[in-house]
Design a protein around this nucleic acid. Structure first.
Length: 795
RNA sequence: GCUGAAGUGGCGGAAUAGGCAGACGCAAGGGACUUAAAAUCCCUCGGGGGCAACCCCGUGCCGGUUCAAGUCCGGCCUUCAGCACCA
């Protein structure tokens, strides 16, 4: 045969698969279903990068494998197009967002076809398609109608670079998720989605979905559930109360001061009674100018005592000083805390600095040196004395509840989702602002509320929405009272469209509902969902929230969105750094595809590193895969005409099938490829492969190298390889009749003998005498023989 | 500090359930073919010792269990990732 011409053959099969819609998923087919999905593509770039290849090839392999195994596979593709990423890209290139979206989709499509991705292309959509965002808006209306979307004036994250408010998830580490600039805090009116309402549901996903341990840990951390109590402290000479949140109500007798966040509203409310108000105002100003880093990471405690007001401990009437201190965060709990320096490290540091007394209420540690934060027996605590921590907590909460001084409370670090952006490229909110009626929801039948085309869509320096300029669109009638009204001009964040898209793939063209109940029931939850771990505390949380909500309103018939989640590692540049233009270490996948071909590239991307680990790109290694492909192409030269599996190749072929099947499911593709190389090396050495052996080998290789195997199968067997079944293996045939058994003396290897599979000890000893007489002569105290594993002689 | 994961040749990485450590591949070295190069094929390839058959050491470190430990147990060290004044 001539040399493998991958260029010609890849073009041929690309066209066939496109024209014949070879990977179309058929609704309601009686075969078992398998729904596999990798996070859809952001179109904020011209095309694929190496990370896409590493993330997507493994799911293409499993999709192709499952089809050959007889599953009805749903493997869709789509475009995450709305939002900051795409819009920032459009601004950079000076184009309209819709144009860059369409251009980039075209390019992505072509590249993905070149890689041999087996998507059902008919199900694709972009989140900026009106037919799609109609239902994103519909979900928002449902949230609004169920009281889960609300407006609130508050302090929110604001990115001065992207000129928009951001959610907490988008501002992790005080950094904008998109531009990595520093995020500021601003006071604004904001749309919130009540995500905290679903916090428990989101945690429950961890019991019902198969996530890697570290993914669960990250989410648990972010959701940050804690159990404790809210306690009301009377304030001397005022009618106001100061409510604090604590996880240690058992230590209430040890409170020696109170601390409130500089933003706490009680300062404004009681300013007339505060004797050092100007000192406090000054402190508030300094804090405002501190960066998020200085405030949260720098451990040096600062604060100012409020002169003129004291708090009263509800259990013993003690008068307690109140401090304004920036180690207290307004965003968590009530923005105020009861400080127990004996048993809290931060309170201890603060008390030392400000010479505040320390009262020990739990036995243990040495509180002269440091806070004792462990559990123990209560002391100095009246009715709690001699109780242990757990019991004391419960007794104290009961006491507070009985006397109406406080209540049991569960708190989350995670906060509600701030949901509006002062940007153009996103879903318009389906609400109208009426001077008479306030915020009024549009009627479902008026969806989609289309995003108007505007020439200058760039964000405004003052954080005003670009849509405000589209006055024809903004001015409207109130759907309730008919008065002149205005539309909401902020838009939804990029995470809106991605919070339910896997459901739409199930029924992408439905105009009457987001997806039909029958089809949702047929396909069910995503069996395997893969993507990057940067989404674990963003997209994955939002997705969980929306899915549970849709389940609660019966729009979706299954409770959990994803059955299993895997996260891929990154592809790093040859220098070990993240690929980036500024470092000049970026490798374009298309530059690899061209000289080596798609199959070799696919194999190498799977062979050269572990799926969930970062991989350092090294082009050298691909040669081994190119060689392998070329060896496969040459196999017909040594093919014999028998349609049987020869005795000699029985074991190696069975082992191959077993190994590959397991490796695909376990995402350990490198071992599968190693096994295929061993197979090819062996038959090459034996100088023959039977026709049937080659047939089964091609099917096993097909998910990894779809182009060459499709071509060879057609040439030799005159059929489509896609219609074949993945061969089964026989466990019994995975081991040779005669095996090599290692022989040890005192646990050290001395030699190897050939014995029958499953041989009994007596027979093994006989063989030992025949094959290794020197060793057999050694006088032994004890013989340890494990069938097919080891013979160990103890002397 | 808390949470999670991981430490194996020059490199990427193998080694179900404790049983031949280093599969498979890359790189490197030697040889064959060739006028030459590429391609291909054959050999070597953890360290140390010996002419040799062979011997000793070796999976981050120190101990332990076991006939047998990369794998199990106890105690450290290091690296990576995420979170971090969360009351």
């Amino acid at each position: 045969m001539s040399k493998y011409n991958f260029k010609e053959i890849e073009e041929k099969w690309k066209k066939i698969w496109r024209d014949e819609k070879s990977f179309k998923a058929i609704d309601f087919d009686p075969k078992p279903t398998y729904y596999v999905l990798t996070e859809f593509f952001g179109v904020s770039g011209k095309g694929l990068h190496m990370g896409h290849v590493k993330a997507n090839i493994p799911t293409d392999v499993i999709a192709r494998y499952k089809r050959l195994k007889g599953f009805n596979v749903l493997y869709p593709v789509g475009w995450d197009a709305f939002g900051l990423p795409t819009e920032n890209y459009a601004i950079k290139t000076g184009e309209q967002p819709l144009k860059v979206t369409n251009d980039n989709i075209k390019n992505f499509t072509n590249q993905l076809e070149s890689l041999g991705m087996s998507y059902d292309w008919d199900r694709q959509f972009a989140t900026c398609d009106p037919d799609y965002y109609k239902w994103t808006q519909w979900i928002f209306l449902q949230l609004l109608n169920h009281g889960l979307a609300y407006r609130k004036h508050g302090i929110v994250n604001f990115c001065p670079n992207c000129k928009t408010t951001l959610s907490n998830e988008d501002s992790q580490n005080g950094e904008c998720d998109r531009c990595h600039g520093k995020v500021e805090q601003k006071e604004r009116d904001v749309w919130y989605l009540k995500m905290t309402e679903y916090a428990e549901h989101m945690l429950k996903d961890h019991e019902n979905c198969d996530f890697p341990e570290y993914v669960k840990a990250m989410q648990r951390n972010w959701i940050g559930k804690s159990e404790g109590a809210e306690i009301d402290f009377d304030l001397e000479n005022t009618a106001e109360k100061l409510t604090v949140y604590t996880t240690r109500p058992d230590t209430l007798f040890g409170v020696t001061f109170m601390a409130i966040a500089p933003e706490h509203k009680i300062i404004e409310q009681l300013k007339n009674k505060i004797q050092n108000i100007s000192e406090i105002t000054n402190y508030q100003e300094t804090v405002k100018h501190k960066s998020a880093f200085d405030r949260t990471v720098a451990k040096d405690k600062t604060g100012v005592e409020i002169v003129g007001i004291k708090a009263i401990n509800p259990v013993n009437g003690a008068k307690i000083p109140i401090f304004v201190a920036d180690y207290v965060m307004m965003g968590y709990g009530t923005g105020a805390l009861m400080a127990v320096p004996a048993h809290d490290t931060r309170d201890f540091e603060f008390a030392q600095k400000f010479n505040i007394p320390i009262i020990q209420v739990i036995e243990g540690g040495d509180i002269n040196k440091q806070a004792f934060t462990g559990d123990g027996k209560l002391i100095n605590s009246d009715f709690l004395n001699n109780k242990n921590t757990d019991e004391a907590k419960q007794l104290m909460i009961k006491y507070l509840e009985d006397k109406k001084l406080g209540r049991r409370k569960i708190n989350f670090k995670m906060q509600d989702w701030s949901f509006n952006r002062q940007r153009y490229w996103g879903e318009p909110f389906p609400v109208v602002i009426c001077p008479n009626c306030g915020y009024v929801a549009l009627d479902e039948n008026d969806l989609p509320l289309k995003l108007p085309e505007i020439e200058d869509y760039k964000p405004d320096d003052n954080g005003n929405s670009p849509l405000a300029k589209a006055t024809d669109w903004v001015n409207c009638k109130c759907p309730k009272c008919g008065a002149n009204a205005k539309r909401e001009t902020d838009t939804m964040p990029n995470w809106a469209g991605s919070s339910w898209y896997w459901l739409r793939f199930i029924d992408p063209h439905n105009n009457n509902e987001l997806a039909s109940q029958e089809k949702l029931k047929y396909w069910g939850a995503v069996d395997l969902y893969t993507g990057g771990d940067e989404h674990v505390t963003r997209h994955m949380l939002y997705a969980s929230f929306w899915h549970h909500f849709l389940y609660d309103i019966k729009a979706v018939p299954f409770e959990y969105p994803f059955k299993k989640r895997l996260c891929n590692g990154l592809v790093l540049g040859a220098d070990g750094n993240k690929m980036s233009k500024s470092l000049g270490n970026v490798v374009d996948p298309m530059d690899i595809l061209k000289p080596y071909g798609a199959d070799a590239f696919r194999l190498y991307s799977l062979f050269s590193g572990e799926y969930d680990q970062n991989t350092i790109w090294n082009e050298q290694g691909i040669k081994g895969c190119v060689k392998f492909i070329s060896n496969v192409w040459d196999l017909p030269n040594i093919m014999t005409d028998e349609s049987i599996i020869s005795d000699k190749h029985q074991v190696i072929l069975n082992k191959l099938i077993k190994k590959v099947s397991e490796a695909i499911e376990n995402f350990t593709h490198n071992t599968a490829i190693a096994e295929m190389m061993i197979f090819v090396n062996t038959v090459k050495q034996d100088k023959y492969i039977t026709k049937e052996e080659l047939r089964e080998f091609l099917i096993v290789l097909n998910p990894f190298a779809p182009f060459i195997t499709s071509e060879m199968y057609e040439q030799i067997f005159k059929q489509s390889i896609l219609k074949q079944s993945f061969p089964d293996f026989d466990e019994k045939k995975c081991i040779e009749d005669i095996i090599e058994l290692p022989v040890q003396i005192n646990g050290k290897l001395k030699g190897v003998i050939k014995v029958a599979n499953n041989a009994e000890q007596a027979e093994v000893i006989t063989q030992l005498k025949n094959q290794l007489p020197n060793i057999a002569q050694t006088p032994t105290k004890k013989i340890i023989y494990v069938k097919n594993r080891i013979l160990n002689l103890i002397v």
